[in-house]
């Protein structure tokens, strides 16, 4: 039996080389796919990753409003605590009035500041909603203060609490658009 010719050896080598290239490509493709899958699965809080990016103007607005939002949100919680402390008998009428009046000023100040913030057209409705919530908080704090005035009482507190909760709901809805992930699972 005659040995392999040069032509046969060359052809064999070519087949082996081509097979190696194909094998490498298959393995590489498989790995890439797996990594891509892992990235999708691993995207923190799935839905966030699918959100369309904000425009530069929208980002700027979200950032500007956050400066107003943070003290407002804290004030809203303080307002609930003023009510809790008062109902638990931990603070007297004078202290209650002092705490609530300070919150009214925070809401009033925020109300002024928000008029200086220019929303992009896409966020105009949301901007109006937020401004409305600030006014509702302010009105709620004024209503709350009536509870310790002559003739006032729990009815004022209950009415104010309802208003406050309504404004708080608006804050969450606005936050859902502007600051996704504001409240993470905990």
């Amino acid at each position: 039996m005659a040995g392999p010719t040069f032509k046969t050896i060359a052809l064999g080598a070519l087949v082996v080389a081509l097979s190696a290239v194909v094998a490498y490509a298959v393995v590489r493709e498989f790995r890439t796919t797996k990594q891509a899958d892992a990235q999708v699965v691993g995207a923190p809080m799935g839905e966030h990753a699918q959100r369309p990016a904000m425009s530069a103007a929208e980002e700027r607005y979200a950032s500007d409003l956050w400066q107003i939002h943070e003290p407002v949100r804290t004030a809203a919680i303080r307002m609930s605590f003023a009510g809790i402390s008062y109902k638990m008998g931990e603070i007297d009428k004078a202290e209650f009035k002092k705490r609530v009046s300070a919150l009214t000023e925070i809401y009033r100040d925020a109300g002024k500041k928000i008029h200086a913030v220019q929303p992009p057209p896409s966020f105009e409705p949301l901007h109006q909603e937020y401004a409305g919530a600030l006014q509702t908080y302010q009105d709620a704090s004024i209503e709350m203060a009536k509870a310790v005035k002559p003739g006032g009482g729990d009815d004022n507190l209950i009415k104010a609490q309802g208003m406050s909760e309504q404004a708080s709901t608006t804050l969450l809805k606005v936050g859902e658009t502007l600051w996704p992930g504001e409240y993470k699972p905990n």
């Binding site: 949100r73 609930s80 009510g83 109902k87 209950i158 709901t169 804050l171 502007l178 992930g181 504001e182």
Partner: peptide
Amino acid sequence: SPGGCARTPACGYPPKTVDQIYAKVLR
């Protein structure tokens, strides 16, 4: 910071949740 609860001491208590606790106390 925007977009993240960074585990500050008051993290996780939105106004609406505290509002609802207060509503129970109030009533």
